[in-house]
Amino acid sequence: MAAHGTVVLRVCRALVGVQDADDVWQETFLAALRAYPESGGIRNREAWLVTIARNKSMDHHRRAGRLPVPSGNAQAPLAVAWTATAGAVAAAAGGDDVVRALEAGEDAAMVWSAVALLPEKQRLAVIYHHLAGLRHAEVAGLLGNSEAAARRAASDGLKALRVQLLGQDREQP
């Protein structure tokens, strides 16, 4: 089960942000352990864990009294929050590591904010399919749409993301 730690972390970071993702990651695995003896019939453990991570992320937003999903115009505050995290990571390191971590953190923050700008279904399809590696049929189960629609949303979402990122690059001096 721990082999899926990376996939679950990606989903948590995408759904609640890098800073809160660690807590949701742990809640996800504790919930999975709690459910384990009754989960013998689970065919795809990874999709099952991603579903738990999704539910725990929604719980997290509900507790925080926030909207369950970042809306399109949330780009600026999200980008600020993620860059601040990268800065903190960089400050904790030293010398060249600071520069490298800061640059890597800025690149990641840029991609996260571009993901946050995508329309809801595309954003989730990109997260579940391209980032977490679930199959389109499993994504459709999470999104409540058809496999064809999930496939289209993942593909359109990635295209839109590419355009987003090219636009951001051009804005940089």
């Binding site: 660690d22 990651w25 890597a104 953190g105 690149d107 990641a108 990109v126």
Partner: peptide, 25 residues
């Protein structure tokens, strides 16, 4: 677990610090 090479190149920057974070968690 999916390997980084399967990530679309647009998403690769998100994976930079994953290994350390997962090890810690």
């Amino acid at each position: 677990m999916i390997a980084n090479r399967e990530l679309p190149s647009e998403l690769l920057p998100l994976a930079v610090d994953e290994d350390g974070a997962v090890a810690r968690l």
